[in-house]
Write a protein that binds this DNA or RNA. Structure first.
Lengths: 246, 246
DNA sequence: TAGTGGTCTAGACCACCGT
DNA sequence: CGGTGGTCTAGACCACTAG
């Protein structure tokens, strides 16, 4: 089966780019599942009727964009993004012994709401559509270090309203995948600096208006559609982030 | 001339990686100059006695690392990093009309000093070695928005002490290249939040201890040796930075 | 040992750029 | 137009991983 015939794509694009689009579609549509290996390179080459090098170049693009992961001698896998300690890139998170830790999470509030203009824009949902709102705090050694406001579209995540919050666990993204079948593929974060609103200050145990770093995150699925909007607050003095520029 | 014979490098490394090391050396040693084109791919292939594809893979690595830049139909060039508006990635910098601007720079202080432990570590220079210290403010529409403390090793930049500060211009890196022959190839920045020390507060026209974002930068040459240490302060409320994660 | 990705080659043709 | 990088092929062999 020839690629040009099997897939509607701009004929003027290079073969390897069209091939990459085909592979991306496989990931988006779940035919290639996160954590699972994709077919071997030579199998893909014969399947699509192209040379091995063309397949390799297409795969390289998806590796560069973070969709795939190569493991020498084993295969090429759909990458499951490691958001495990995403916020540790921004805040110094160490326990009493100075070792890096995964903060414990505690849900303080869970309720349904209606998307205001900001939430609707972030989630790409209609204004006034139903949402789930979570407010949680994250703790190290039992002490609060982060407060998070989370907004989800109601429909895909309705099951979250039935599950006891104590069963949510410390990480939400694996939970999303488990109860809603939605995997987070990437996220965009915006860092600003402000002062703690009262509810956040209370949760963090700091005084009202204390300086905080604010991280606004929009998490998206493999199809780049927004899944979750999140705002994280942490004490400004714990904030630290490194960037390389060229 | 065969590559394996012409260059002392780990024989076990793949050809294209050894080739990349050779090319890197050319850039570091100035045989390939910033802004100038490197030899054509087929010329490099015959020169080093390897296949075209191997040269391409070596060049691709240097493009990915930001050392080279390809221009279709023209050639491959040694990249001159665009630090032009590096701080605009962190601070909202717009003029009264809301258009992005390049801030004007004004040197407030220039003096020689001796490297303390921190400066010595950052610059990779001996403790107590001679340095040049600059303190400058950057302005948009005549209003200060950033204050910068800059530390340079004395020897390579001695010429800076003779040039009138009003002739420094708004950008230091082109100046470094012009008067000291040192080109900045990359930099590492560390973001934290703190409070403005008195001298900074005075320069920015804010009150003492006002919240500021602090950007510590170490700028390096093509050989990865530190050239400049810089600390920039800006009002916390102007700070905004976006990150993509996967 | 079989299967996978990694390296390397040799050569063809295309698309873009400046003159 | 000539020269450059961009695409694509076909096939060989190496290095790593698992069973």
């Amino acid at each position: 089966m020839s690629l040009a015939l099997s897939h509607r794509s701009d004929e003027r694009l290079p073969l390897y780019q069209r091939l990459r689009d085909v592979f991306t579609a496989h990931i988006v549509e779940g035919r290639w599942r996160p954590g699972a290996p994709v077919p071997a390179e030579d199998a893909l080459a014969t399947e699509h009727g192209v040379a091995l090098g063309t397949v390799r170049k297409a795969l390289e693009g998806l590796v560069a964009s973070g969709h795939l992961e190569r493991r020498q001698g084993r295969g090429t896998y759909v990458r499951r993004p490691a958001f495990r300690n995403a916020l540790a890139r921004f805040f110094r998170m160490t326990d009493a012994a100075g070792d890096p830790v995964q903060p414990e999470a505690r849900i303080l509030r869970r309720r349904t709401g209606l998307a205001d203009a900001a939430a609707a824009a972030k989630l790409g949902a209609p204004l006034g559509s139903k949402t789930i709102e979570l407010f949680r705090v994250r703790l190290v050694d039992g002490r609060p270090i982060l407060a998070e406001e989370i907004t989800l579209p109601f429909a895909p995540f309705a099951a979250l309203m039935d599950l006891p919050t104590r069963e949510f666990g410390d990480l939400l993204y694996p939970l999303y995948e488990r109860v809603a079948g939605r995997a987070v593929a990437r996220a965009r974060e915006q860092i600003t600096f402000g002062r703690a609103p009262s509810r956040v200050a209370a949760a963090l145990g700091v005084e009202n208006g204390a300086p905080v770093a604010i991280i606004d995150r929009i998490a998206c699925g493999f199809d780049d559609a927004p899944l979750e909007a999140r705002r994280s607050y942490g004490p400004a003095e714990r904030f630290s982030y490194a960037v390389d520029i060229r």
